[in-house]
């Protein structure tokens, strides 16, 4: 293994009994790898492919297709703000502009201290509590699924949330 820890490899191994093929473990395995590493480098893809005994190209295409997988280093916190229609009708454009102002970066960028990566997001199925954002910590080592929504955003609530991220 180039970069995956023994714990991650064991966790991926234990996925295999859930599916009739090892290829089907690709998405959950990548979620686990990203939890350990924070992002998915070529070495990480190589390791996942080795554990699953599938061609590395299979893993690489999956990493590049899905928006939750990062193929380059991102901030400790990833904050994605919904810009889709239901949120826009409730002021998402201003919320996004305010987040960019507070953090001093544009969507798609990471703060210089590596604290926060800010991104646009498309609809996250919280249209009744718009505007909203999604928060995740890709490399926190925890189990996948620790992500949270922050809903019914105002500019004040957003600012307090962003400043509270350590």
């Amino acid at each position: 293994m180039r970069v995956l820890s023994k714990d991650t490899v064991d966790a991926i191994e234990s996925l295999k009994k859930r599916y009739p093929t090892t290829l089907a473990c690709t998405l959950p395995a990548l979620h686990l790898a990203q939890k350990q590493l924070g992002f998915l480098s070529e070495d990480a893809e190589h390791d996942v492919a080795e554990v699953l005994d599938v061609p590395p190209a299979r893993v690489h295409e999956v990493v590049t297709f899905y928006t939750m997988f990062h193929d380059h280093k991102v901030g400790r916190h990833v904050v994605k703000i919904c810009r889709n229609l239901a949120c826009q009708l409730r002021g998402a454009d201003k919320v996004i502009a305010h987040a960019e102002k507070v953090l001093g970066i544009k969507c798609g960028e990471t703060t210089a201290d590596g604290r926060v990566t800010l991104e646009h997001e498309e609809c996250l199925a919280a249209c009744g509590t718009a505007p909203m954002l999604w928060h995740g910590m890709p490399g926190d080592g925890g189990s996948p699924g620790n992500e949270t929504f922050v809903e019914n955003l105002t500019e004040e609530k957003l600012e307090k949330f962003l400043r509270g991220l350590s």
């Binding site: 409730r90 002021g91 509590t129 718009a130 929504f149």
Partner: peptide, 16 residues
Amino acid sequence: GDYAVEPTPYNFWEDA
């Protein structure tokens, strides 16, 4: 015009 930021008052529906 631009749209103002106007969330709902119904925090019952929030995951939090």
